Every structure is written in structure tokens, then in C-alpha cells.
Simulated scan of single mutants.
Amino acid sequence: MVCIFIQIRCRPGRTYEVADSIYEKEVVSELYSTSGEYDLMAKVYVPDDQDVGKYVNAIIADIPDVDRTLTTLTFHAF
């Protein structure tokens, strides 16, 4: 599995609704509220046989009130 982090910018006032929608999909390992440019950060494990871009799109594309995402790939833990 590949560990990725997805930062999510939500429309103002909609962060909790977006977080609830993400949790309903049962695909995130951890989900945090963050300060700064993005509102949420999700830790996701992508199965080895899945394309990361398509997997992220499947998680996020149908969630209303998401303005932007930023995905960070990881290589290994220290």
C-alpha cells in the first residue's frame, strides 16, 4: 500500500459537512482539521493495484463544497 496525504480546501462554513462525507466513504486512515491554506488533511492508504490519481478522484470528486485538493505522495517512513 502507498501512504498519501490529501489536503482539502472547503467552501467557507462547509468543512464539517465535507469531513462527514469523507468519513462516510470509510477510506481514510486519519482525518484532521488544519490551519492555513487548506481546511482538512486526510491520511489515506492506496492499494498497490490502484492508480493514485484515480483513487483520489474517486474519493473526492462527488463531495460537494470541495474547492481544491493537494495530494502528497510518500515513499517510506523513517
Rank of each mutant, 00 (worst) to 15 (best):
M1G: 13
V2L: 13
F5Q: 03
F5S: 07
F5D: 04
I6Y: 01
I8F: 03
R9I: 02
R9D: 06
R9Q: 13
C10F: 01
C10S: 12
P12K: 05
G13P: 11
R14C: 09
R14P: 03
R14E: 10
T15N: 03
Y16S: 15
E17P: 10
E17Y: 08
V18D: 04
A19D: 01
A19H: 00
A19Y: 00
A19C: 10
D20N: 15
S21D: 11
S21K: 10
S21H: 10
I22V: 15
E24K: 15
E24I: 08
E24D: 15
E24M: 12
K25L: 14
V27T: 02
V28E: 01
V28Y: 00
S29N: 14
S29G: 15
E30K: 06
L31T: 02
L31W: 02
L31Q: 07
L31M: 14
L31C: 08
L31A: 07
L31G: 08
S33F: 12
S33T: 09
S35E: 09
S35A: 14
G36W: 01
E37T: 14
E37Q: 10
E37S: 14
Y38E: 02
Y38F: 15
Y38L: 05
D39R: 06
D39T: 07
L40H: 03
L40M: 07
L40W: 04
M41T: 07
M41N: 05
A42I: 00
A42L: 00
K43M: 06
V44C: 03
V44W: 01
V44P: 00
Y45N: 14
V46C: 11
V46S: 06
P47N: 07
P47M: 07
D48S: 14
D48T: 13
D48Q: 11
D49I: 10
D49V: 04
D49Y: 08
Q50W: 04
Q50R: 14
Q50P: 04
D51I: 04
D51V: 08
D51M: 05
V52R: 08
V52D: 09
V52I: 15
G53F: 06
K54C: 04
K54W: 04
K54R: 14
V56I: 15
N57Y: 11
N57T: 11
A58Q: 08
A58C: 09
A58I: 02
I59E: 01
I60A: 09
I60G: 10
I60T: 13
A61T: 11
D62L: 02
D62T: 08
D62R: 06
I63E: 02
I63T: 09
P64F: 04
P64T: 07
P64Q: 09
D65K: 04
V66E: 00
V66F: 03
R68I: 04
R68Y: 11
R68N: 14
T69Q: 14
T71V: 08
T71C: 09
T72W: 02
T72A: 05
L73V: 13
L73C: 09
L73Q: 09
T74H: 03
T74D: 05
F75Q: 10
H76F: 13
A77S: 12
A77D: 09
F78L: 15
F78K: 13
F78E: 14
F78M: 11
